[in-house]
Amino acid sequence: MWNYSEKVMDHFLNPRNVGEIVAADGVGEVGNIVCGDAMKLYIKLSADKQHIDQVGFQTFGCASAIASASALTEMLRGKSLAEAAALTNQDIAHYLGELPEEKMHCSVMGMEAFQAAMHDIRKKHPELNLPGGENDLTGEDRIVCQCFSISERKIKEVVQQNHLTTVEHVTHYCKAGGGCGGCKGEIQSILDKLNGSAAAASPAAARPAPGAPLTNLQKMKLVQETFDEVIRPGLMKDGGDAELVDIDGDTVYVRLQGRCASCPSATQTLKHWVEAKLRELVSTALAVEEVKG
């Protein structure tokens, strides 16, 4: 059960400024039906083109998507273009009195729709000479998350504006990484670049994306888990067993037990199976050494 604030429920049940504006100065469309939420924002400017006169929206999505869109339209109405440009997704969340963490992407979607509408205004009204709007599809506008079409720029923006430190947070805020998960490593590198090593050391980052760089602590935990959940059950199937003796840097010290200990092909087992499993599931940098006796 989601715990929605009264304000969210109010904007969900009584959304403001619903509908299309026919002669809009800018229309922004984001999301799509595959993702489960989508929004269309219509902006009409004042006669002098300096202020936002009317705003309208259409949203496909859950309660918080509808409430975020409704809130955004209320916040935009009457603002100068410069004031509006300074809004962030946090402002939407605050206006609604907080959104559940997993639903923050709804507020981000509102901001994206606004940015898309601004882009449209720039195109339709080049005479206004509005700043910003260069899109560079090979650089920051390159799509990182293919499942939800999220660009590097978008990810950087949500990370910086919301002080995010983990891939999971990034997924909650903009969905990136929430589909096939194939881009989690890349999101981690974006996080690392932006946050330096601070993020990697945070305990919340305990279970990193596959392929992501590991801290020593994470590595040790993962080796231990893999050892208990995969390697020992695997060896036990054949009447063997093993003990994790120590981890030193990238070297894992293992003592074979049970039938493995007396098995002539023990070194083979160690190198080929235990090491391969650890490399596959933890880090390709790992090497296994046998501890005798």
């Binding site: 929605y4 969900f12 496909f60 309660a63």
Partner: peptide
């Protein structure tokens, strides 16, 4: 079609 389940449930 065209609408989302959570919104329907809360309504």
């Amino acid at each position: 079609k065209y609408i989302e389940g959570e919104a329907i449930l809360l309504r």
